[in-house]
């Protein structure tokens, strides 16, 4: 073995990548040669020095600033909830949509009565209540809560109508946190083609990086050629944020373990 190879072995030994027998052979070679012994010692000490490096400490101002920011962040949230009903724009949209939904539910309700099927009637009544509850919410946190409670996948499979409602929320709600809640709930139904399609389509429209990241992570768990193409398009799209590209790239790596 030449000195270059001996050095390679030394690094592998310190990385814990050698077997016991390989390590013993290396030690034998090192101990028989003074130059190798010095090189080995220098590597050992360099590793020890790296081990001993302490984290740097920022000034206390950094912690103070962050805690102040965190306090203000919480206050902002409280103010938003307190201002319930003040914002008109998105609420008008919700009401309009709630009207359409109510008519739709009414028609479905009538049909269920016609069928004299109490079970269907009960389900639709529940749906109606759930939807009304969702539509009535005016603060972001209440709408998120409505999604979490009313669209709980543990209650069982969602009907197509309910999934449509969630997709509508995803495509129309102005709050990124509400859209995120919709994405996370829809993620429980990735076996449905309509859900996969909706998430892929929404990805092209979404402006919030956090929502995009979540959708990419969810899509990345599905082995599907269309999703792969979507992720590849993101990786090649320079207008995307760096962290979004990175996440898409990471999911692609996981996807087939070869695209680097």
């Amino acid at each position: 073995m030449n000195i270059e190879k001996i050095e390679d072995r030394m690094v592998l030994a310190l990385e814990g990548a050698l077997s016991n027998s390989e390590f013993e052979t290396l030690m034998k070679v090192i101990n028989e040669n003074h130059e190798y012994t010095l090189i080995w010692k220098s590597y050992q000490e360099m590793y020890q020095d790296m081990e001993d490096v302490l984290p740097e400490t920022p000034s206390s101002e950094v912690a103070t600033k962050f805690h102040e920011w965190l306090d203000n962040y919480q206050e902002e949230k409280v103010i938003n909830i307190a201002q319930k009903g003040v914002k008109k724009g998105p609420i008008m949209l919700w009401r309009k949509w709630a009207g359409v939904a109510a008519i739709f539910i009414g028609v479905l309700g009538f049909w269920s009565m016609y069928q004299s099927n109490r079970q269907v009637e009960g389900t639709l009544a529940d749906m109606s209540k759930q939807m009304e509850r969702l539509m009535e919410q005016q603060s972001t946190s209440e709408r998120i809560k409505a999604i979490r409670v009313n669209f709980n996948p543990e209650k069982g499979d969602l009907s197509n109508t309910m999934i449509d409602v969630l997709i509508q929320v995803l495509n129309t709600d102005q709050s990124s946190n509400v859209r995120l809640a919709a994405v996370e709930t829809l993620a429980q139904f990735m076996d449905k083609e309509v859900v996969r399609e909706a998430l892929i389509k929404h990805l092209a429209l979404e402006e919030d990086g956090g929502v995009k990241l979540t959708i990419i992570t969810i899509l990345g768990q599905q082995k599907n050629e269309k999703i792969k193409t979507t992720l590849e398009n993101i990786v090649n799209d320079d207008s995307q944020e760096k962290f979004v590209i990175d996440e898409a790239h990471m999911q692609l790596i996981r996807f087939d373990q070869i695209d680097i």
Binding site: P55, E56, T57, P58, V62, A63, F66, H67, L70, Y73, Q74, K77
Partner: peptide, 22 residues
């Protein structure tokens, strides 16, 4: 539970700062 972020900050901010400084 946003308030818990303070604990994460206290635990990891030195690592984050060290990396960024280096």
């Amino acid at each position: 539970e946003i308030k818990k972020a303070a604990l994460l900050f206290d635990r990891y901010h030195a690592n984050v700062y060290s990396y960024l400084l280096r």
